[in-house]
């Protein structure tokens, strides 16, 4: 099933990626090529097979509920593109 222009636009929106009109054919072709490649998946019979999400069949470790980290807001905000008074700046969302 080939990918349509609408599919590219829909997926780009979901992925929060701006794709211009001019770029659509190029991504359409790219995605089509990959989906062709992965279409072989449908040839395998996988009834009664449990999906494998991860190489380790173990449950995650638990730790004591104790504070282990200091507050390092200033350090972590040093690499942010725009901060003011300890807050991350974004375009206005509420008028």
């Amino acid at each position: 099933m080939p990918i349509s222009e609408n599919d590219v636009t829909r997926v780009a929106r979901l992925a929060r990626l701006r794709v211009t009109e001019a770029e659509i054919p190029q991504y359409q072709a790219g995605l089509d090529g990959i989906l062709d490649l992965v279409a072989q998946l449908h040839e395998s019979v996988t009834d009664d097979i449990e999906p494998m999400a991860h190489p380790q069949d173990i449950s995650l470790r638990l730790r004591e509920d104790q504070v282990t980290e200091d507050d390092e807001r200033d350090l972590f905000q040093e690499c942010a593109p725009a901060v003011e008074s300890g807050l991350y700046l974004v375009p206005r969302v509420i008028e």
Binding site: I3, A15, L17, G30, L31, L35
Partner: peptide
């Protein structure tokens, strides 16, 4: 994201989002 990522990364993000 459009300005920061290159073409291959965008392609993989798009296919990953699709599946």
């Amino acid at each position: 994201r459009a300005e920061g990522f290159g073409e291959e990364v965008k392609r993989r993000i798009l296919i990953g989002t699709y599946v």
